[in-house]
């Protein structure tokens, strides 16, 4: 078996990025779209850690910490907005969330 190189990690992260992008583009369910965005950010982290390993430094890991922080913040706000939306939806009885038309 070949030893695992940085390239392997890059390919893996590119694939995960593609999966996440597909998820955002094809799903109509807002929560699943948010999850797809988490996938993209995880792809970024795989990249960062692989490079960090390559350079034997920890800058990539620090970067990854920030990416995770941002991901958490985005998810929290996104879910907050979602709750506000659904609260209105319950009161105005709209059939469908219109926003996903683009």
């Amino acid at each position: 078996m070949h030893p695992i190189t940085t390239t392997h990690y890059l390919i893996l992260s590119a694939a995960l990025l593609a999966i996440g992008a597909v998820g955002v583009l094809i799903r109509r369910n807002i929560i699943i779209m948010l999850m797809s965005i988490e996938l993209i950010l995880n792809a970024v982290n795989i990249n960062l850690i692989a490079f960090s390993r390559h350079y034997q430094d920890v800058i990539g890991q620090v970067f990854a910490i920030f990416v995770i922080t941002v991901a958490v913040a985005e998810a929290a706000v996104g879910l907050g907005i979602l709750i506000a939306l659904f609260r209105n939806k319950a009161t105005v009885q709209a059939d469908e969330v219109e926003i996903l038309k683009w």
């Binding site: 922080t69 941002v70 958490v72 913040a73 985005e74 929290a76 706000v77 879910l79 907050g80 907005i81 709750i83 506000a84 609260r87």
Partner: peptide, 15 residues
């Protein structure tokens, strides 16, 4: 950033 996120999610989610 996290402060903004906390405030934001409270503003959004609270009745």
């Amino acid at each position: 950033l996290l402060l903004a996120a906390v405030i934001g999610s409270v503003v959004m989610a609270k009745k």
